[in-house]
Each structure stands twice: as C-alpha cells, then as structure tokens.
Amino acid sequence: MIKFSFVIQDKQGIHARPAGILVKTAGQFKSAATMHCNNKSADLKRVFAVMSLGVKAGMLVTVQVEGEDEVAAKAAIESCLKSNL
C-alpha cells in the first residue's frame, strides 16, 4: 500500500472536469485507489463519490493505492493531481 498527500491549488477545488480526469486515470489501473479528505473517503474510480467529497482550494487530500500495479498508479494519480489541481 502506498499513501501520499496533496494540497489542492485549483481555486474551484475538485470540480466536475478534474474529477472526471482523476477517475479516468485511476480506472486505468488494477489497484484500488481511495481519496480521503475532510474525514470522508471516496473510491477514486467512482466520479459521483469523488465529486461528493466537496474538495475545495487549499484542502489537503490523502490518496491511498493498493494492488499489484500500485507504484505506477500512484505516479499517474500524483501527476494527474499536479497538472490539473
């Protein structure tokens, strides 16, 4: 299992478009991916769940990936966060 954290820079927070990009990215891997924020958590492969976290600018999110391709999944999700949020 790998865990990492990220502070959301985008002023709109995780809105529909980046939520979609995140879900598509997480969906490419076999590993389970979960995002934690604000004492809530969401399956990163489910767009409604990710949007329902209501993540806003300046909030810290923690992502947890677990599975056979977790190293690649972590790298992809992290770079996705960096370039879109």
């Binding site: 478009r17 979609g20 598509k24 492969k45 489910r46 767009v47 409604f48 769940a49």
Partner: peptide
C-alpha cells in the same frame, strides 16, 4: 476542449458504479 469536457464527465456519470 474546456466545454466539451462536461460531456466526458457525463459519460463517467452514466457508467459510475454507485449509480
């Protein structure tokens, strides 16, 4: 591209596992 992205999100919504 920016505006077209919403239809991409709609596709993810229609296939969202919870939904």
């Amino acid at each position: 591209e920016e505006e077209a992205a919403i239809f991409d999100v709609h596709q993810l919504m229609v296939t969202d596992l919870d939904y």
